[in-house]
Design a protein around this nucleic acid. Sequence first.
DNA 1: ATGCCTTGCGGAGCAAGA
Length: 256
Amino acid sequence: MKIATWNVNSVKVRLPRLLEWLKEFSPDVALLQEIKVVDEGFPSMEIQDMGYNLAVHGQKTYNGVAILSKHRLEDVSMGLPGGDGTDGQARYLEAFTGGVRVACIYLPNGNPAPGEKYDYKLAWMDRLVAHARDLLAWEEVVVLGGDYNVCPADEDVWNPVAFAADALCLPPTRNRFRQLLHLGYTDAVRVFHTGPLYSYWDYQGGAWEKDHGLRIDHLLLSPQATDRVTAAGVDRTPRGREKPSDHTPVWCDLEV
DNA sequence: ATGCCTTGCGGAGCAAGA
């Protein structure tokens, strides 16, 4: 079962890229972030025609997440628990599909740090850690995938010195990501690959051509999912195409 | 030091991204 995450940076603009990638890569489950549309604006027809069921948690202009699955989507819930209903940003969507519980995460960027935005990021991460802990009690095959806006280690940054004070790399950010690992979640890509590996390249300054990237998109696996993972990686192909997203898909294969 | 690019919104030039 192939599960992939991709920050598409506007599902409307990226629709041709998305459709060709779905056809070529044919993931069983696709977790999309930054769709930047309200639910009614989502290109449901085109995607359903390719054999996918949909769960959409949209928002006007910013954010927005969606889950695409070839399997039935059950137990769909919008929003990260613990927000007291005050979280107006569409950044979290969860569902059970094909025997796997999947979360689609668009974690706040947090820049500039320090500041209100960074405080929001850290608070959001604390809520994620708490929810991730709760999920473990069910002993399910869980995949927490998405744009984490976290570079877990220096090897995930093309220039660690330049990014040392960035919200994606600051110690409080990395500490919270590490809490997820300490709970028992596994960074799928790092099971199979060592060394520098990126999932995002800035549009500016020819970052893609110079391979000036960051690894900020992740698939975290519960112990039950880790037992079943057979492969994982980054699919760089979509980033090199016409009108690309600045992110590229990250995927894993589970034997379920 | 700043902008570099891309998006949405709205119909110019910001805000936001990372």
